[in-house]
Amino acid sequence: MLSIKNLQANVDGKEILKGINLEVKAGEIHAIMGPNGSGKSTLANVLTGNKSYEVTGGEVFFESKNLLEMDPETRAREGMFLAFQYPIEIPGVSNATFLKTALNEVRKYHGEEELTPKEFLTMLKEKAKVLGMDETMISRYVNVGFSGGEKKRNEILQMLMLKPKFVLLDETDSGLDIDALKIVSSGVNIYKNPNTAFLVVTHYQRLLNYIVPDFVHVLYKGRIIKSGTKELALELEERGYDWLIAEQAEVV
């Protein structure tokens, strides 16, 4: 589904990604772990087309289409979804207006009819309920005055509404208490299906107890230095990253 080949990228002229290679198939869950500053969030932003990040080399194919040639909204409409580490506030714009606009843009792109207001509302209320969200959030302004947990839940709500094919979770566990973490993870697990792939960017193993990955990759200084299964995450939890970095140094 997603094929990343030798991807390199700069932020403010500084080289952050130094050649990423990764293959993700439909139905798989991949976790990207790594110490601070290793390039995890950069990868998520580059894949979704954030213009503050400059791609300097390599290629990415999303369902055999050249992803890097698409603008951010086209990537989104094609089914690429990023749950933001820090969801953005949009004052004066209600969650409902925002979600309805987004959903109809995606539907239009795929030649589907726009939802009627009633259909939309029914769907929105149903999904909000799954995440244990208060109905008042529907008319509240996008992320304005939301607690950290509410913001993350709002991201998952958007995922459930937009039904993307490829989901990037960028440090979705950061700032969440254990209850919120469980709810957010259950949202992901409900959505998990054979046609959808996940790339879970996380600092801690904790999240992976709830969203169980098929593969774990360690990112360090802009490169994937180790790949394995979920056991690798447990090992990292126990031993930290230093041994891996040392191992890496020996190889070089």
Partner: peptide
């Protein structure tokens, strides 16, 4: 904010 615009872009909305 460019971050606001990107957030909306990422949900399928044009700039």
């Amino acid at each position: 904010g460019e971050d606001q615009i990107f957030y909306l872009n990422q949900r399928g909305i044009t700039s």
